[in-house]
Amino acid sequence: MNMGKEIWNLLRKDLMLELRMGYALSGILLYVFSTVFIVFASFIQLPNTVWNILFWVVLLFASVNAIVKSFVQESGNRQLYYYSLVNPVSVLLAKMAYNVGLLFLISLLIWAGLAFVGGNPVRDPELFLLAMFLGSSGFAITFTFVSAISAKADHNSTLLAIMSFPLVIPILMTLVKLSANALGLMNDTGLQKDIILLCAMDGLLLGAALILFPFLWTD
């Protein structure tokens, strides 16, 4: 079986598990809406600069909650079965691809939620969507890989947060700058540089994850 097909089948398996269980996805949805509600209940008037930062902070915490279960929802024996059946790297890539999609969906929901209660300050939707996609990819790659590490330990949700937050700070800083441009808060001429930087960071992390994963899954 070639790798593309393997990844596709694993992706379908993850999606079906998610839809069949149901509660995980609805839990994330509820998390997003309650956070948005709390934000507006306490702020009432939300300046655009704060909107921009809150968007990414809400996404950051929602991502951790969404991704922490990647490598723990199925039992260790079943994981081992997958690893013997297909290339272990395909398992990681499928999880990452699934999480990129999930995070992109969550970020769309957060955008919709924030826009519904507080108005939509985004002036350049294309740029904002691009930032959301690059951000989702960066978060998904980092969190998926770190969750593979933390799944081996107890208390893994705390461990995931403390191990991955410092790693995504550079991505987060660049994202805030990029979306500030999309909101019209800033007029940066070096926008291309930021986009290339984000792509490079995503690619670098992905490469490192692919090289290191073979050392990770063997027990």
């Binding site: 980092t142 890989f145 770190v146 590490i149 191990m163 410092p166 790693l167 550079p170 930087l197 490079a200 960071m201 670098l204 992390l205 490469g207 490192a208 994850a209 290191l212």
Partner: peptide
């Protein structure tokens, strides 16, 4: 983790 973190530190 040490290696992965180092790669994240490069940028």
């Amino acid at each position: 983790y040490n290696l992965f973190a180092f790669v994240a530190l490069i940028p």
